[in-house]
Structures are given as structure tokens and as C-alpha cells.
Write a protein that binds this DNA or RNA. Structure first.
Lengths: 223, 223
DNA sequence: CGCGAATCTCAGAGGAACCTCAGAGCGCCC
DNA sequence: GGGCGCTCTGAGGTTCCTCTGAGATTCGCG
């Protein structure tokens, strides 16, 4: 039902030997791997490509690993990040997590654990994958269109895409108009816009994609 | 979102000393803490209350920690879970993560790291829902619907939801019409409304959800 | 069993919430 | 600079929720 999951991975690692080892390891597990050799290049990749998950080494030339995480988060990149480090002190871990990394693995690490943590990251972070489940169909977030099912692909506008993305990423949650306005419509006062875009999505995708919870707001149609 | 973030926390820990220590620690950080002493009680709390995050010890009597995680996930509970363990082997970690836990901390742990991991969990997991036990099914208060059992989800209106919420939160108590009117129906004089909404709930959920205590009022059907 | 009181059932009025959609304003691309 | 698509507004029509009230049914007690 969910189409295949996106398995693209960005590895930022300066040590050539370790990079090669990890790349082979990840590829063997079915990931599509891009390797960056320093923070600068990692930043560039992360900002221009879309990845399901990133693995970043702390000890990088040019830009330090934790600093890279912070910069990415500051730019709005929400892709889950796993940080590798040789240092295992508590302050290091705290710093990494508070910078916005999702998880932390200390070198030398067990390969199985690293892979398990990656699986865990991917499983709970569907919202940054490029494909979101819509039941019969799915939303391709980067291409801004809805595919699958029987009919032809359906193109979405920017707003429509953002709105549907939010719903699809949280299929059981009820969103109030206020929440939607703040998350999707940056302008604080556009009272009717939410309703209008729900209407647009329904017109394009069918009445049931989004359900009204009278007096509260909206939520995803499936589930 | 509406105001402050939810900071409710469920701690499942059998060691009394450690439980007390952690409770004080979490409370000091601004969390509202419920403590369960074994897996059974933890399961019950987790299914009937809403928490922003859960901290579960692996070595529990009755139900093992990882097993508890698995059961919760199987029942659709998506609250983020952090597992504590004395064992630090790789297989243990892999097992915990694959069971559906979000994170893993090995005892003895640094307090700062534990708190940082909790912050990280909370930051990336904003949505969870309030659940009340109805026996076979449960009421999702925030989504205003009844789920579980065999059939399809049943949507409730605002009033229906409020009324059922009151009953479900106090399964043994008998409510008079007056009490119900005061708690659920803002207008002090809407004499027949209570009866009507009891009727609506029965029509949607089955005759037995709410029982009549002739001459007194109503109470929950189960228990 | 019979009667009054309590409860159940349900159609419908009133009002709030919501849906629909034409069109104005804006930016972008040719 | 003109056309096109996207975004948001606002007004009118529609749906849904809430509560009322009246007739049917059940309960409890003598």
C-alpha cells in the first residue's frame, strides 16, 4: 500500500577507509548512498538533495559535525540525522542531541546496532520521506503530485502540497484551523484560506481525502 | 499549537529507589509524572491515559519491558518510548529498537544525557492522543471517535464526546441527570438533552454502553 | 394486574459551522 | 507588458449539531 519507502542516505565522513566501509555496508542493506568528504560538501548535498536519513561524523574538517547539524536545522531541514563520534562523553552526547540530531552512536560501534538505529530512524520519520501514504495513492512531496490508484497523476500547487503533506504525515491527528494556518499559511491572518484549500484538495482528490471534525477542524480521511 | 507543550510522562520502573529518584528528577524538569511499578499497571496506564512520553525499564516483573513496548505498539499507541536497561549488549539494543522503542539508555546512565534524550524525543514527537478505556473499544478524546473492537471507527459529535468522556473517566460512578447537565451541558435548564444524548450514544455504540439506574441516573455499561 | 412516574424514541426548529466558488491581487515567465 | 497560474477573500447556500417536546414504552410498587 505504501509504495516502497525512500532509502536514500547521505553519509558525511572524512576518513576514506571508514567512508568506503560504511558505503558498502549501507548499500548492502538497500540504501542509495551519497558520500560527502567534508562538512562544506555535506551541507551542499543536504540542501540541494532530499534524503531519507543522514549519517554524519563529528570529527570533520571545515565544518564540525554538530555544527553542520545545527546549520541544517536552522535552514529548516528536518531529515533525521544520526551522528557518529569517537568521543563518548556525556557532554558530547547532550550537545549533539540538543543541536537537533535524532540519534548518536559512539565509535567503535557494532554494525548491527548502527543498522538497527537507522531502521528505527527511518520507521519513525516517515514525514521527511518524499513519499507519503494516502491509502490507495501516495503523495510525492518533492514532485508535488499524487500518484498511484487508477487515474492519471494529479498535480498540486505549493499550498495544496504543504497542506496535504501535513495531513498525510499525521494521519490520525485532528488539526484545528489555527494550527493549519500557522503551519501551512505563514500569514497569521488568512481566515478562510484553510477552508478554501481543503476544498481544493477535495475537488482534486475526492471528498474523502480530508474529513471534517465539526467544531474542531480537519483530519486525514484514511485511518 | 495551543499554549504550552504537554509534558506528561509515564515512568514504568519496579525498583522503588530508582523510581523515586527518577520521579523527582523528571518533576524537577517540569514533567508531570505518573509512576507504574510493573508492566501490567504500566500497560493499563498507557492505554487509558495520554502521555507525551514514556520511560520504561527493561527488567520488569510480570511483563518484560520490551514486551510491553511491543504490546503498546500493537494496540496503536504511538507515544514515544525511551527504554532503560542494565544490559548493554548489541542484540539487546537492536531488539528494543525493533520492538518500536524510540530510544535506548543503558544503566548506569548520566542524568544529563537521559534528560537530553527526553528533550529530543519530545521535540520531534508533538502529536499523541488522549485515550479512555471502554472495554472492547476505547474513546479517542482528541479525535472525538471510538476505535478498536471489530467494527469501523465511530465518529462522535462534540456533546456526545463530552458525555462519553465523563462516563469513561469514572466507570463505576452513577451520575444523576443534574450532575450530567451541569458538567456537560452549559445551559442549566435543558431538561431533556441528557436523555437525548444518552440515546444518541446508545444508538451509535450499542444499548449497553450506558446503563440506566432507574430513579437515580446513568452509569457506564462496563464495570 | 394496574397505575403513575420515569424513561425512551425520534421528528424537527433554530442557529452555528462549514462548503462552494467567482473574482481580485500578486508574482512569474515569456 | 501581457498572459497565466497561484493565493486568498468574501458572500451565499448547505449541512450538521444541539436541544425541545410529544407520544410510546418500560419500570416499580401496591
Amino acid at each position: 500500500m505504501t509504495g516502497d519507502q525512500d532509502r536514500s542516505l547521505l553519509l558525511v565522513e572524512d576518513d576514506a577507509k571508514l567512508a568506503a566501509l560504511l558505503e558498502r555496508l549501507f548499500t548492502g542493506e538497500g540504501y542509495t548512498v551519497d558520500v560527502a568528504r567534508d562538512g562544506q560538501s555535506g551541507l551542499h548535498h543536504a540542501l540541494t538533495q532530499r534524503y531519507a536519513v543522514m549519517v554524519i561524523d563529528r570529527g570533520l574538517p571545515a565544518i564540525e559535525g554538530v555544527d553542520l547539524v545545527r546549520r541544517l536545522r536552522a535552514r529548516g531541514v528536518s531529515t533525521p540525522i544520526l551522528v557518529l563520534t569517537a568521543r563518548g562523553t556525556t557532554e558530547d552526547r547532550v550537545e549533539g542531541l540538543d543541536a537537533g540530531a535524532e540519534d548518536y552512536v559512539v565509535k567503535p560501534f557494532e554494525i548491527d546496532e548502527l543498522l538497527a538505529r537507522l531502521r528505527a530512524l527511518l520507521r519513525r520519520h516517515t514525514d521527511s520521506s518524499t513519499r507519503l501514504d494516502l491509502g490507495e495513492r501516495y503523495l510525492d512531496v518533492t514532485a508535488r503530485r499524487v500518484l498511484g490508484g487508477t487515474g492519471a497523476p494529479i498535480e498540486l500547487s505549493g499550498r495544496e502540497n504543504e497542506l496535504l503533506q501535513l495531513f498525510a504525515a499525521h494521519p490520525t491527528q485532528v488539526f484545528t484551523r489555527d494550527e493549519l494556518r500557522r503551519q501551512v499559511f505563514q500569514d497569521a491572518d488568512s481566515p478562510g484560506a484553510v477552508d478554501t484549500y481543503v476544498y481544493y484538495l477535495r475537488r482534486k482528490l475526492g471528498r474523502d481525502v480530508i474529513r471534517t471534525v465539526h467544531g474542531l477542524g480537519y483530519r486525514m480521511g484514511s485511518a
